[in-house]
Amino acid sequence: MKRPEHRVPNFDVIVAGVGGMGSAACLQLARRGQKVLGLERFDIPHAMGSSHGINRIIRLAYFEHPSYVPLLRRAYQLWRETEQRFGEQLLYVTGGVDAGPAESSVVTGSLAACRAHDLPHELLDAREIMRRFPAFRLPDHYVGNYQADAGFVMSERAIVAQTTMAMAAGADIRAREAIVDWEPTAGGGVRVRTTKGTYEAGRLILSTGAWIADHVPALAGKAVPERQVLGWFQPKEPQHFALGALPVSIVDAPSARCYQFPVFGVPGFKIGLYHHFRQLGHADTLSREPTADDEAALRQVVREVFPGADGATMALKACLFTNTPDEHFVVDCLPGVPQVVVASPCSGHGFKFASVMGEVLADLAIDGTTRHDIGLFSLSRLNG
């Protein structure tokens, strides 16, 4: 008896990687009537990549480059829209301080973004920062740019919201199904092979985070995973670290650049260091197990800048940044294969943009272009 012929499912768009940006892309595509397949190698959400640990900072005073600010304005709008439709608050506004020596890039870049885009802001000296926010202990020569719109986005809950709403809009999303490889088809589409099957689609979005170089050879050596560790420390002066008393902040501390959050969701004041120990490697080989050295490095900065939080350790969690040489994103159609869209890596500062990047990625997948200015994120720049 002849076996029935197996038909390969056909989709308009396959999204490989259902993290912050991938889940947002699935949502935007499904809302536009696209037949979408979302594939995630781990759980949704999960703690193996870059988008876990309760929350991520969002801010308009973007010291990395003023070109990010219009995208951020749209990101805020879309996060508000998402939380209203989902029925759960995802974006919390706390205000934000970017502090350091007056000549530091955190301060000068933050001020440049505010001035370029007419963002209301206040330049404060160290004494005034500590008066308003007693959790801080800053050297006398430090200054800080305060911008009232900063805050944080609930990272895992945002992925849950976007995924749930995408499925409600018709997206087919599957966890624990890793992409093995992909190839263009003769008809101008793509064929994707996974650990569980083979699928065809007109377009493919690769948003696989720390694994992106495995699927885009042009990013080999240019999208490099880096191990990060976040710490939560119980304040000895909890009133100074509570939501409403402490803004999110980025500080060029004497020993390391750090970022931090008020206590929220779990016990402890959350803090992380930029580039931590600069431990680089493949995403499969970098350890997710925090160590005593990780804790000591974080606690050193706590003692320097936030001594009132130098209490018991509540939690330590490892995550991955994936850095480009200039630390800007990669969001582009793949040269020579325009039906494939490459999304990120985000060099550690991308989650806040997930909502608007979903819109950008849907634009690129459907139309090959977007109204948003993403010139800074071209793949070709890394070949210069």
Rank of each mutant, 00 (worst) to 15 (best):
R3E: 13
N10Q: 15
V18I: 15
G20M: 14
G22W: 11
K35E: 15
V36L: 05
V36W: 14
L37N: 10
G38F: 13
G38M: 14
L39T: 05
A47E: 14
G49I: 01
I54N: 04
R56Y: 01
I57N: 01
I57Q: 08
L60A: 06
P66F: 00
G87T: 02
G87P: 10
G87M: 02
V93A: 04
D98M: 12
G100H: 05
L111R: 10
H117T: 03
I129Y: 05
F136D: 00
Y142I: 04
A148V: 11
G151A: 09
M154C: 13
M154W: 11
V160S: 02
T163Q: 02
T164P: 04
G170S: 04
E177N: 08
G188N: 10
V192E: 09
K196G: 15
Y199G: 02
T208K: 02
G209S: 06
V216W: 01
K222D: 02
V224P: 03
P238E: 09
A245N: 10
C258I: 15
G265A: 05
P267V: 07
I271A: 11
L280Y: 15
L286M: 08
S287D: 07
E289V: 07
P290R: 08
P307D: 11
A312C: 03
T313L: 15
M314C: 13
M314Q: 14
F321C: 06
F329L: 09
V330Q: 02
C333R: 14
C333P: 02
Q339E: 13
V340R: 08
S347Y: 14
G348N: 08
K352D: 03
K352Y: 04
F353A: 00
M357D: 01
D367F: 14
F377M: 13
S378G: 14
L379W: 07
L382Q: 04
N383E: 15
